[in-house]
C-alpha cells in the first residue's frame, strides 16, 4: 500500500519538473492514484491491542528431582528408573567422611561417572549433610540453590543464563501477562558429568523430494 502511494508521489514530482502538457500531467497524477485507490484504498484501519504493561510475572527456576533424589536400578511400569529420595537413607545413615574417588562409593552411588574437571567430592559436598552444598569460600548453601555453586566457575554461562540466552524456558516472553519457568543447570547438565549427552534427533524430514531420494549424496 505504502509503495503505491510513493509511486504516485514520485510521478507527481516528475510531472512538475519536466513541465509536461496538462493532459499528460493529469494522467500521470491520476493513473497511479486511481490504481492505488482501486487496489488498497478501502482498508478499514485495524485496531492494535494495548502495549505490554509493567512486568508482574514471576521467573521461577525449575527444581530438578536430581537435587533431592537418586535413580535406583528399579523401574516403574513405564520403564523409567524409580527414584529414591536422598532422605530415605541419609536420615539414618550419616557418613562422617567423604570418599576421595568415585570407586569408593557404594549402594545407590555405585557406578557414578565423574568427569568434571579436577574437582573432588568435597569440592561441593559436605560430609554428613546431603541437603547442603559448600561454596569455594566455605559458606554453606541449600541444595536448591545449587546454581550458585555453578556460578562460581562458569561466568560466561551465568551471564548468558541471566540474559535468557542459555538454558531453556517455558511460559511468557511478556511478563506483564504471566510468569516464566527457567531450566535449572542440573536439568541439562549432570553435575558429575556436565557435558551435554548426545541423543538421537527426532522428526526426520520426510517432505516430498527427501523421501524419494534416500540421501543427499556423497558428502
Amino acid at each position: 500500500m505504502i509503495l503505491s502511494k510513493e509511486h504516485a508521489s514520485t510521478d507527481v514530482a516528475l510531472a512538475r519538473r519536466v513541465q509536461w502538457p496538462p493532459a499528460v500531467r493529469i494522467t500521470a497524477l491520476l493513473a497511479p492514484a486511481a490504481i492505488a485507490l482501486a487496489c488498497c484504498g478501502s482498508d478499514p484501519p485495524r485496531a492494535l491491542r494495548p502495549p505490554p504493561g509493567p512486568p508482574t510475572g514471576r521467573i521461577e527456576i525449575h527444581q530438578p528431582e536430581r537435587l533431592t533424589s537418586i535413580a535406583s536400578d528399579q523401574r516403574d511400569a513405564l520403564g523409567r528408573p524409580l527414584r529414591v529420595a536422598c532422605v530415605t537413607c541419609h536420615s539414618q545413615r550419616v557418613p562422617t567422611t567423604l570418599p576421595s574417588t568415585v570407586t569408593e562409593l557404594d549402594e545407590f552411588h555405585q557406578g557414578l561417572r565423574f568427569e568434571h574437571g579436577a574437582l573432588s567430592c568435597g569440592s561441593c559436598h559436605v560430609a554428613g549433610d546431603q541437603r547442603s552444598l559448600r561454596r569455594a569460600d566455605g559458606t554453606m548453601i541449600d541444595m536448591r540453590d545449587a546454581m550458585d555453586l555453578c556460578r562460581q566457575c562458569h561466568g560466561p554461562q551465568t551471564r548468558d543464563y541471566d540474559h535468557g540466552s542459555h538454558g531453556g524456558m517455558t511460559g511468557h516472553w511478556d511478563l506483564s501477562v504471566g510468569g516464566r519457568v527457567r531450566n535449572h543447570c542440573v536439568d541439562c547438565h549432570d553435575p558429575h558429568t556436565p557435558a551435554f549427552q548426545p541423543s538421537l534427533p527426532v522428526l526426520p524430514p520426510r517432505d516430498h523430494g527427501i523421501t524419494r531420494q534416500p540421501s543427499r549424496g556423497d558428502h
Binding site: 548426545p198 538421537l200 526426520p204 527427501i210 540421501s215 543427499r216
Partner: peptide, 9 residues
Amino acid sequence: TVDYDHAVP
C-alpha cells in the same frame, strides 16, 4: 545435511 540420523551433537 538435513536428514542426519546419528546421535547429536
